Computed example of a mutant assay.
Amino acid sequence: MVITRHVHHPTNLTKNVLIKVFQEVTTWFYDVSQKDVHYIYPNIAWDTLLHAGASQIHPHVHMMLSPDHYYGSMELLRSASQRYYLTKRENYFSAVLDVHAALGLVVEYGDAVAIATLVLCSE
C-alpha cells in the first residue's frame, strides 16, 4: 500500500504527489514481477474516504499483482473482451471505440482516446 506522508485530505493532493504515488506503484509492480514472472495482472484500488472502517479520511492506494486474473470489474471486462474476440475475431475495445465515436462520445489527444461512458441507473 502507498500512503501519502503529509497530505491527508484528497483535495490537498498536488500533481507532484500523485505522480510520486503512481511512480511508487509502478516500481512495486515491476519489482514483484521481476521476482516471479507469472505475476502479470496488476490491480490498483484507490481509497480515500471512510472505507473498511478507516477512522479518518486519507488517500492511499492498494496494489495487488495476480498470476491468473484481474480483480473485480476489470476481470469481467478482460474475460468479456476475450470471449468477444474468440467469437467475432475482432478487438472488443476497437468495437467499443467505434460505437462511441459514431455517437460523438470520443475525444482524441495525441495517441490517446477518451470515451464518455453512459450508464443507466435505476433504483
Rank of each mutant, 00 (worst) to 15 (best):
L18Q: 03
S122M: 13
L120I: 09
D111S: 14
N91F: 02
H38G: 11
S81K: 03
R89L: 08
L97H: 04
E90V: 08
L50G: 06
V99Q: 13
P10T: 03
Q56P: 00
S94Q: 14
S73V: 15
H8V: 07
I115A: 15
E24D: 09
Y39E: 01
M63T: 12
Y71K: 09
H6P: 00
T27D: 10
I44V: 14
G104W: 11
G72T: 01
H8F: 10
D111A: 06
H69G: 14
T11I: 12
N91D: 02
Q23N: 01
V2S: 07
L50V: 01
H9Y: 13
Y71I: 12
T87A: 11
T117N: 15
T26C: 06
A112F: 07
L120K: 01
D68G: 09
S79H: 11
L77E: 14
T11R: 15
R83C: 09
H51E: 08
G110T: 13
G104E: 02
R5M: 04
V2I: 12
E90N: 05
Q82S: 12
T48L: 05
F22M: 07
I3F: 04
H60G: 03
W28A: 11
R89T: 00
E108M: 08
V17R: 06
E90K: 15
S55G: 00
V96H: 09
I19C: 05
L118E: 10
F29P: 02
S66L: 14
L49C: 04
L86V: 10
